[in-house]
Amino acid sequence: MKNLLAARLTWPVVALAALLLLNFVLQPNFFSIRVQDGHLYGSLIDIVRNGAPTVLVALGMTLVIATRGLDLSVGSIVAIAGAVACSILASSGSEANVPVVIVAVAAALAAALVLGAWNGFLVAVVGIPPIVATLILMTAGRGLALLITQGQIVTVSSAAYRVIGAGFALGLPVSILIAAVIYAAAALLTRKTALGMLIDAVGVNPIASRIAGVPVKGINWSVYAFSGLCAGVAGLMISSNVTAADSNSAGLWIELDAILAVVIGGTPVGGGRFSLSGTLVGAFIIQTLTATAYTAGIAPGVMLVLKAIVVAAVCVMQAPRVRSRAQRRVPSRPRAGVRS
């Protein structure tokens, strides 16, 4: 019990469970999942599917924040990726063609990677503070996306492109599978190799890390490039789901949702430590909140207040002081060496 209360993930998981329970009370068939046209169908599947872009963006954000950084430009990269893919498809004249779709997707991801690397360059090489460096692209990026689409909402009707955001494979939405694969790859790379430790080290003390021989510039550069790539994939999902590139509203405020997901998940904003599983739970808390608003019929304006209350509650619960107090209150069997 003591360890459970102290564990970093406990409160986010409790919050998520409470939210799901609230939905169950509001709508008794909330947990029911049935097979519809050969794939799974239900509220939970909707939440995971609609949450997939946020999960991806938050995943990239976790690693950036772990190095004491911040990436504000992800929302703009989401818009640019969609704009690039849809513009190529629309101007190709043969958008149903699978090779054309592959080219469009590859171009969008390449653009996202380049933009992420640009952020990395500004932070790692030029030495601009991350919040300022990524603010540049946050501001300019949406304009860039509008330039690409010439200020229009570019609509495509390619069935192959639609698979990314709205298709199904193995009975599950493709977007969930894509997010799961990228998440697993990131988890393996950071936990089974020394990469995770190196990222932590950069976050704890970049100067000491450099002196100790950690390739600080390279790490910084790669986390921003990875964050850009994640945002690019998220952008493809969002635009593919509605088969259109809406440069004005695609990915709007997603950077804030992602930062929230990271913080709720227990990764400190000061860097030096990160939790990918925490971020996953955090992203689903945010998506479940959104779904609750639609189910319960709460006006979007009011919903922002509720969102803030939940986030504040989880953050307070996670604060080191609160956690150590909770630990002390629980009557415990005498055991040696549990003080953290």
Binding site: Q27, N29, F30, G42, S43, D46, N50, T290, A291, Y294, T295
Partner: peptide, 8 residues
């Protein structure tokens, strides 16, 4: 998203 939730 509104329609998805409302259909349930």
């Amino acid at each position: 998203q509104v329609m998805e939730a409302q259909l349930k």
